[in-house]
């Protein structure tokens, strides 16, 4: 269905692009949020990803990859470019926002959830971006190894070893606290 909308966009039907945005915005913004840990930045970058996708639509080849995979590639490249600029503001803002997200009515459980969430987010954030992206794409976005390989531009073997490395690092950081 998305591929049909892409074709319609190429034929000048801009409205079909709104359907694509609506269908894929959640995945893209979620990925960017987990990479940057900042909602505003994720939303800004998400908009930029879709604008860039529209501009580069002629370069998309449906034989090579699904449109969502191609879009993730754009998002990943844009995000890594931004991360290289090292904006410390991103993490600070998100730390403040995260405490407001828990919806548990019990204040004690609410505090525990917030602490756990904070702990995981911080542990993931300490990963190097090349490990972080693989971990998020695989364990949060549930993409296949082949899709992750396509997005990151690495062989499947490299993706597997990076994921393994990321999981080991996170286990070391999280397991003691989780067991306690």
């Amino acid at each position: 269905m998305i591929e049909d909308w892409v074709e319609q966009c190429r034929n000048g039907q801009t409205r079909s692009f709104a359907l694509i945005v609506t269908a894929l915005q959640d995945k893209i913004v979620e990925f960017l949020y987990r990479m940057t840990r900042n909602r505003e930045a994720a939303e800004d970058l998400g908009q930029e990803v879709f604008l860039r996708a529209y501009r580069l639509l002629d370069r998309y080849d449906r034989k090579k990859a699904a449109f969502s995979t191609w879009l993730f590639t754009l998002a990943r490249n844009l995000c890594l470019d931004e991360l290289r600029k090292k904006r410390p503001l991103w993490v600070n803002l998100e730390d403040a926002a995260m405490a407001e997200t828990s919806s548990d009515p019990d204040p004690h459980l609410q505090a525990r959830d917030a602490e756990l969430e904070q702990m995981i987010a911080t542990a993931v954030a300490t990963l190097d971006p090349i490990f972080r992206e693989v971990f998020i794409l695989r364990d949060y976005q549930h993409l296949s190894f082949e899709e992750v390989a396509e997005i990151t531009g690495c062989p499947v073997g490299t993706v597997k070893s990076r994921l393994h490395r990321a999981r080991l690092l996170l286990q070391d950081k999280l397991t003691p606290a989780l067991n306690a």
């Binding site: 959640d26 913004v29 939303e43 969430e117 995981i120």
Partner: peptide
């Protein structure tokens, strides 16, 4: 890994704003 996988959903996702599109 099982313990970690159970804890991962605790990190809630960010949903785009309603007027994103």
């Amino acid at each position: 890994q099982e313990i970690m996988q159970q804890a991962l959903p605790s990190w809630k996702s960010a949903t785009p704003s309603p007027d994103f599109a």
